[in-house]
C-alpha cells in the first residue's frame, strides 16, 4: 500500500509540474480579465503614472483623461475585490521589478487595512507569478502562503484556472489601459449610505502600508494617496489613521470621500460605493486636474486647499 501511495504521489508530482507549466502558458495567453491584467503588470506595461487600488480604482479612474491632462502615460492597475494593502504591495513590487513609474497613485480605504480571509484568496491571483519577484514573494512568505504554492504548482492556478481556460480562445474585452467602465444601472442608489464609524487598522497591515511607502521611496517613486467618492456619509475622522501616516510621511492625500463629493449627484453612482461610467469620467477630470496641480506644485499640498 505504501508503495502504491508513493507511486501515486510520484505520478501526481509529474502531472502537477507538467500541468503547472501548461497552466503558466495558459495564464500568459488567456483573455480572462484578471489573468491578463496581472500579466500586463508583471511584465508588460511601463507607465509614468500607475494607479493602484480595488474596484473603486479600476472603475473610477479613466487613464485617457488623466493622460490628456498630465501629458504622462497612465495605467490603471486596480483590480476588483483585491481589497488589501498586501495585494497592492505585491502589485507594486511586480511592476517595480521591470519598470519604475514616476508617480504611483494608491486609491485606498480603511477596509483595506482590516484582516479577513478574502484578502488571502485574492492574493492567490498572483500565485502563478511566484518566483519572478523576491519582494512580492516576501508577502506570500509573511502570510504563510508560500509552502502550499511550492508544494504544488497546479495549486497556484486554482483560483482562476477554469476562467483562464474557458477564455483562452475568446476575444479580448476592450479596455482603456486597465480602466473598466460600469454600465448605467437600471436605477440609481436611492438612499445615501448610513454614517460609518472608522475601523481600526490591523497592525500587520498598517506595517505593510509603511513598507509600501518605503518601497516607493527606495525607487524614487512619488506616492500619492487618494480616496475616490462614494455615495455615503462618513464620520469626519473616518480616515484619520491613514491621514496621520500620510502626514508623518509627507505624502499628498487627495480625499474626495469625506467631503461627500457628488453626494448630491446620485445619478453618477452605480451603487453606494461605485461610480458608473458617466460619474467616473466626470470624477477623472476633477482628479486629473488636481493631480496636475500637485505635480506642478512638486507634490506639496496646501492645507487650505479643498482636497
Amino acid at each position: 500500500m505504501l508503495c502504491s501511495i508513493l507511486v501515486i504521489f510520484i505520478l501526481w508530482y509529474a502531472f502537477d509540474r507538467a500541468g503547472g507549466a501548461a497552466m503558466y502558458w495558459v495564464t500568459w495567453h488567456t483573455h480572462e480579465h484578471f489573468s491578463q491584467k496581472i500579466c500586463k503588470i508583471v511584465g508588460d506595461v511601463s507607465p509614468d503614472i500607475l494607479l493602484l487600488g480595488t474596484s473603486r480604482c479600476e472603475n473610477h479612474y479613466v487613464p485617457s483623461i488623466i493622460q490628456d491632462s498630465t501629458g504622462m502615460s497612465v495605467f490603471n492597475a486596480g483590480i476588483s475585490a483585491s481589497g488589501s494593502i498586501y495585494f497592492q504591495y505585491v502589485t507594486l513590487a511586480h511592476l517595480l521589478n521591470h519598470h519604475t513609474p514616476k508617480v504611483v497613485v494608491l486609491d485606498t480605504g480603511e477596509s483595506e487595512y482590516v484582516e479577513h480571509e478574502g484578502h488571502l484568496n485574492m492574493l492567490s491571483f498572483y500565485a502563478p507569478h511566484i518566483g519572478r519577484c523576491a519582494e512580492a514573494d516576501s508577502v506570500f512568505s509573511q502570510l504563510g502562503m508560500m509552502g502550499r504554492y511550492q508544494f504544488s504548482h497546479l495549486y497556484r492556478y486554482h483560483s482562476l484556472s477554469n476562467a483562464a481556460i474557458a477564455r483562452l480562445f475568446m476575444p479580448d474585452e476592450p479596455n482603456d489601459n486597465g480602466y473598466t467602465p460600469i454600465a448605467c444601472p437600471p436605477s440609481f442608489p436611492s438612499t445615501i449610505g448610513e454614517p460609518q464609524q472608522p475601523l481600526p487598522g490591523a497592525p500587520q497591515m498598517l506595517n505593510t502600508f509603511r513598507r509600501f511607502i518605503a518601497l516607493c521611496r527606495s525607487h524614487n517613486v512619488q506616492l500619492v494617496l487618494s480616496i475616490s467618492p462614494s455615495y455615503s456619509i462618513l464620520d469626519e475622522h473616518y480616515y484619520d489613521e491613514l491621514k496621520a501616516i500620510a502626514a508623518k510621511e509627507h505624502l499628498p492625500f487627495l480625499d474626495y470621500d469625506t467631503p461627500g463629493l457628488y453626494t448630491d449627484h446620485p445619478e453618477y453612482f452605480y451603487d453606494n460605493a461605485h461610480l458608473w461610467e458617466k460619474g467616473s469620467r466626470i470624477f477623472s477630470q476633477r482628479f486629473a486636474h488636481d493631480l496636475k496641480l500637485l505635480i506642478l506644485n512638486n507634490y506639496r499640498t496646501d492645507d487650505s486647499e479643498p482636497y
Partner: peptide
C-alpha cells in the same frame, strides 16, 4: 488505477474549491 488516481488528485488540485 494508479494513473487515474494521480490524475484525479491533480484535477482536484487545479479545479477544486479548496476553501
Amino acid at each position: 488505477l494508479h494513473v487515474w488516481l494521480a490524475m484525479m488528485i491533480a484535477f482536484i488540485t487545479l479545479f477544486g474549491v479548496l476553501d
